[in-house]
């Protein structure tokens, strides 16, 4: 894949833009990319502990790590004799659909992280559990849009479900290669609230680390499941909750995470039930990117 860093240098010139999930970004405009690390709540004192002080060393942990990583390494070594990504070559080449995430049993929930505006001091709650017959995942909770009283945060009330970054042996990053598909297929059941799908792809520079590709997922509500198919060409680029002026299509060869966010400023309960998240190849869809890529706002 032609993922040259030069190309990326040329494409990035940041301007802040429309708010996606307002609470993620409390600044109005004017500030370009700023390199703050982890979010620190206003008024919270700076951490004075050295980073190496926070690592707890233990012999048992080390032994566990060796077992885990050597096991992963062994898998990686022997998988390549079966075929790419441990699957037979025929299956790999001929597949038109792929189920990337499904929820079968409690261990499948460990691949996901739930967060809400608790982190910024809000009062929303979000929980994740298996559905009624242990074959779906149910994200539920309540949204409360009261912003925290810290004087800076202006919006609040969101919750997020995000998949974890997959890792290979020795904690190297593993990426999903979806380049043979062009659509995202979800089977969901919501309650009428709109959601936003965030796809995080691997980036080259550190100032792109907050880049996400987003699209909106509308739910119908009601007791029936619905199949949603979203072409990847519709995803637009945003950074720190702002849609960027200079858009770029999502490169599917190195996808890290997928996330679901809601925050439509309506106080009350919410729920989203996901059966599976899959990828499919829609041969009728030929669009590469849905938004203009010429230089805007020169």
């Amino acid at each position: 894949m032609a993922l040259t860093p030069l190309k990326q240098i040329a494409t990035r010139h940041r301007g802040h833009f429309l708010t996606l999930s307002p609470s993620l970004c409390s600044l109005v405009c004017g500030k370009r990319v700023n390199f703050m690390g982890v979010y620190r709540r206003p008024g919270e004192p700076r951490e004075t502990v050295w980073p190496w002080k926070k690592i707890e060393f233990s012999f048992a942990k080390g032994v566990d790590g060796i077992y885990k990583h050597l096991g992963l390494l062994k898998d990686e070594m022997f998988q390549r004799f079966v075929g790419p990504q441990g699957r037979p070559i025929k299956e790999h080449m001929l597949e038109q659909t792929q189920v990337q995430w499904e929820f079968r049993g409690p261990e499948s929930l460990s691949q996901w992280v739930v967060s809400s505006d608790r982190e910024i001091g809000g009062r929303s709650e979000a929980y994740l559990k298996l559905g009624r017959n242990n074959t779906t995942c149910l994200l539920y909770g309540t949204i409360c849009t009261t912003p925290p009283r810290d004087g800076e945060t202006r919006y609040s009330g969101y919750c997020t479900l995000c998949s974890k970054q997959p890792r290979m042996s020795f904690d190297r990053k593993r990426h999903y290669d979806w380049s043979s598909f062009n659509s995202l297929h979800l089977r969901i059941r919501g309650d009428g609230r709109p959601w936003m799908i965030n796809i995080g792809a691997e980036t080259y520079f550190s100032h792109q680390s907050d880049d996400l590709y987003n699209y909106v997922l509308y739910t119908r509500g009601g007791p029936y499941w619905e199949d949603v198919k979203i072409p990847f060409s519709k995803f637009f680029l945003s950074s720190r909750g702002r849609v960027q002026d200079e858009q770029h299509q999502l490169w599917l060869d190195k996808v890290n995470t997928i996330g679901f966010t809601t925050g439509n400023e309506a106080d009350g309960p919410f729920q989203l039930e996901i059966d599976f998240i899959g990828l499919c190849n829609d041969r009728a869809h030929t669009e590469e990117f849905a938004y203009e890529m010429y230089k805007r706002n020169p």
Binding site: T97, R104, G131, R132, R187, N281
Partner: peptide, 21 residues
């Protein structure tokens, strides 16, 4: 036929039928 199987390899969710709302 070499492929073109557009179905997903997942189990159907077992749920009771809905009769009315």
């Amino acid at each position: 036929d070499m492929g073109d199987d557009d179905s997903f390899d997942v189990d159907e969710v077992e749920e009771g039928p809905v009769f009315a709302m």
